[in-house]
């Protein structure tokens, strides 16, 4: 098949990830260079006070401004809009979204790419709940909440994907663009809505088991009433989709 060349744009939203960023860039660059796939890494930093952008500048010097792109914003505006912002600058035809806190290991990117090619999927989603997937660094309570929430989601929404709240995914660019226009929720619910809408629009979804290792450096930015907002979001999707 005379398909156009594939290029992968990795979107890395960062807020106070000074310690993690060098590693989150080093690991995928190495694996992309080994595989020979065309790529770029776009860092969307929301004016982190810890000097994340200074680290990004250093990485640009090392790897070149065609491989590493810093597209910052003035202040912390949230994850959803960070993806939209990053996508505007992406030149690849595939977009990979991952957290920049090392809980998403870049070693899975080649597997995402392979799965996407094999099934010609529109979306490939990382899953902690299938096959060799799993987590590390979670206590029993967090595991229980995660499993319970996942079960409830599966029963109520029957989404046809096993991990709705994860945010390690690969999208065809035009698919992500379309979904971004449709999705309105925030936080975890945003990731859920992406999959639900994708099913509604008839997009195909592949899955890759991933190991989720809790962040080593830095602090979690979510928190507070996570469970309440998750339930609210789930019920909203249940009643409206």
């Amino acid at each position: 098949m005379a398909s156009a060349a594939r290029k992968y744009s990795v979107l890395l939203p960062t807020y106070n990830e000074r310690e993690n960023l060098p590693l989150v860039v080093w690991l995928p660059v190495r694996s992309f260079e080994e595989s020979g796939n065309e790529f770029e890494i776009i860092i969307i930093d929301d004016g982190s006070p810890d000097g994340t952008q200074e680290v990004a500048e250093q990485l640009i010097k090392i790897y070149g401004s065609d491989k590493i792109l810093l597209r910052p914003r003035a202040k912390k505006l949230g994850l959803g809009t960070a993806y939209i912002h990053g996508m505007k600058h992406a030149t690849g035809n595939f977009i990979i979204i991952m957290d920049a806190d090392l809980s998403h290991h870049p070693k899975f990117i080649p597997e995402f790419i392979k799965t996407q090619k094999e099934g010609s999927f529109d979306i490939v989603s990382g899953t902690r709940y299938k096959g060799n997937g799993g987590v590390h660094g979670w206590d029993l309570k967090r595991k229980l909440i995660s499993r319970g929430a996942n079960f409830l989601t599966q029963v109520l929404l029957r989404p046809g994907a096993s991990d709705l709240t994860g945010s390690f995914r690969l999208y065809r660019k035009e698919v992500l663009q379309k979904l971004m226009e449709k999705c309105v929720s925030k936080g975890y619910v945003f990731q859920m809505e992406m999959i639900v809408r994708a099913r509604q629009l008839g997009y195909s979804i592949g899955e890759v088991p991933i190991s989720f290792v809790d962040r080593v450096y830095g602090e979690s930015k979510l928190g507070g009433n996570e469970i309440v907002s998750f339930l609210k979001g789930l019920l909203t999707l249940f009643a409206t989709t």
Binding site: L23, L27, L102, H105, Y129, N132, G133, G134, V135, H136, G137, L140, K143, L144, S146, R147, G148, N150, F151, S211, F212, V213, V216
Partner: peptide, 22 residues
């Protein structure tokens, strides 16, 4: 839920690998 909780993979190896790669 209980069964899935009990069989939730703990990715110790992945964590160790990550430490080395860091």
């Amino acid at each position: 839920v209980g069964y899935r909780l009990a069989t939730f993979n703990d990715c110790q190896a992945a964590s160790l690998e990550l430490q080395a790669q860091i």
